[in-house]
């Protein structure tokens, strides 16, 4: 196996594109090294992207934030203002693993590892984040919900790298939240995760929403119907009941050691209601 640590995206892309064998981007390595250790993968080339400036920076852009794909969870939490503008995204990224994992794990890796249960992904989707992807054909911008296709399958072509994410400018009276359910309080993989972002009008009625569910399908879902019911005219308790039903209806989960299908579907509805209530509260206070 070769290890390369280029300083530009062009060099990284060229290295990945030219390798005929299995080539992998290395960000925090918290998925990659485990998979190498357990012989799930056996790459011949690792391209460490942490020497590339864009992947490691956070900066304010277009009223929002551009976040390098290789920024760690610990760095996200320490960056001023980000956690008050997009608390759901920062909280979701900070749910990944332990303090030690937080020191290395990145949102680019969380997305590109291709797990349907990745915690930061539903929060990014709810916030309307876009991934800036660089490859042999140049740069393209893709909504985060369009990056993952199925477990371990992404819409990235050979040689493509997620360079950064753009969290958009947050409209007035907008709040986001992410909740996950795990069987204990730390160090486990989501049974269900739910990210919600919603915008209120001056009277406090919801005018726009994005709802995303993780770990209930082959990939994190953007649930349009759940968002639509939130913008209805009914009283909040009714809206939340409808949200619960719409979230459940979108689930097509599997049975595994963390939960049965029925259980995941039920929890998805409950988490959607709870995340929506936090997002409402944050939207009112923002």
């Amino acid at each position: 196996m070769r290890y390369e640590a280029p300083n530009t995206l062009d060099q990284a892309v060229a290295l990945l594109a030219a390798e005929l064998g299995e080539a992998r981007v290395l960000a925090g390595g918290t998925d990659l090294l485990v998979q190498m250790r357990t012989d799930v993968i056996d790459p011949v080339l690792l391209v460490d992207i942490k020497g590339i400036a864009e992947t490691r920076q956070i900066r304010e852009e277009a009223g929002g934030f551009r976040i390098g794909a290789a920024v760690t969870g610990a760095e996200l939490k320490e960056y001023p203002r980000l956690g008050s503008v997009w608390p759901g995204v920062v909280e979701a990224a900070n749910l990944i693993g332990s303090t030690q994992i937080q020191g290395r794990a990145t949102m680019g890796g969380n997305l590109c590892n291709g797990s349907p249960a990745a915690d930061s992904v539903p929060a990014l989707i709810a916030a309307g984040a876009r991934a800036s992807i660089v490859g042999p054909q140049g740069r393209r911008d893709v909504a985060v919900e369009d990056v993952m296709l199925a477990p371990r399958k992404l819409s990235l072509a050979k040689g493509e790298i997620v360079a950064s994410f753009l969290l958009p400018a947050k409209p007035p009276r907008t709040g986001d939240a992410y909740l996950r359910f795990i069987p204990r309080t730390e160090m486990d993989i989501a049974v269900v995760g739910c990210g919600i972002c919603l915008t209120l009008d001056a009277r406090g009625a919801c005018t726009a929403a994005r709802v995303s569910l993780g770990a209930v399908a082959e990939r994190p879902l953007l649930v349009a119907e759940a968002a639509r019911v939130l913008t209805g005219n009914e009283a909040l308790p009714v809206l939340l009941q409808k949200l619960d039903a719409a979230a459940r209806a979108a689930c097509r989960p599997i049975d595994d050691k963390r939960g049965t299908k029925d259980y995941r579907i039920k929890v998805a509805g409950v988490l959607a209601r709870r995340a929506a209530q936090i997002a409402y509260q944050r939207a009112r206070e923002s």
Binding site: A5, G29, T30, L33, V34, R37, T38, A74, G103
Partner: peptide
């Protein structure tokens, strides 16, 4: 464990707590 789960390999790298089993020597 060598898979990031147990923390027995905790070290700091540039002041940041990490698992030494989840980082390459070259890094």
């Amino acid at each position: 464990c060598s898979t990031g789960d147990c923390g027995a390999c905790s070290v700091t790298v540039d002041g940041r707590l990490v698992c030494a089993c989840l980082m390459l020597g070259v890094e």
